[in-house]
Design a protein around this nucleic acid. Sequence first.
DNA 1: GGCCGTGTTGTTAA
DNA 2: TTTAACAACACGGC
Length: 283
Amino acid sequence: MPELPEVETVVRGIRPQAVGRTILSVRRASPLMARSQVGPFRRGLVGRRFLALDRHGKWMFFRLSGDRTLVVHLGMTGRLEVTPAATPALPHTHLRLALDRGDEELRFSDPRRFGELWLAGPAHLEERFGPKRLGPEALAIDALSWRTTLAATKRKLKVVLLDQRAVAGIGNIYADEILFDAGLSPAALANRVGDQAAEALRRAIGRVLRRAIRCQGTSIRDYVTAQGVPGEFQDRLKVYGRAGEPCKRCRGAIVLDRSIVAGRATYWCPNCQTGSPAAEGRG
DNA sequence: GGCCGTGTTGTTAA
DNA sequence: TTTAACAACACGGC
């Protein structure tokens, strides 16, 4: 599932293929995904040029000329690619943008239709994707404000990691991997773990996400890069999906627990993950 | 062929 | 106000 490392990988793949090019025409499926814009895509997109492509958490921002931004969330199965216009479109392709300089298209496909597409002006951008709605980027958390965030809530650590307003970009897989890396229990209460654990967690966030980006993300079911290639981090997962298998650190059994976060699978090692952080440098 | 799992967000309830 | 639980989304797979 696309979390920060997968989205970052897609951004790096798409950026050189899209930035600088102008949108010649738009083909949009109707209806679009449920949580996406229904309004005038064509008028807002045709003739505009891609100026930059940014990411914040799991959100992608295509900055366009004329002070417009095409905002994309991949949801669970969303996929972006730039392909020759003659290439047959993937099933469930919802948006096709024809690009100048070469006969190519930027395409968005999404079988599960949990993805989102928005064409936003400055006000809409601030309102829906500004700091009120989206927490600090996971790869750039400030140590002091992170300590403050944790101290201010009695929620479980894993719940906080998944909260996109607390920190943007982490989903179910990396939450589990980060907590294992930090040696912290997913069920530990945020306001009880202390400053040392907060800092250990912050460093684990950076370590795990950067490692996963180097591997081009985790491909378990649907995710592939913009070039259609699977990532490789699934081979390096320490806990996620490994219920019953031996912990890579203590050889004890990894546990699957559905009670820590309602409705979500949580994989962890009860032996290695406690209420206080493990020594640095695991993995 | 119906049900469940899947991740995220928004909504509702406590 | 904060937190927990749940609904909705849509499809593949069992």
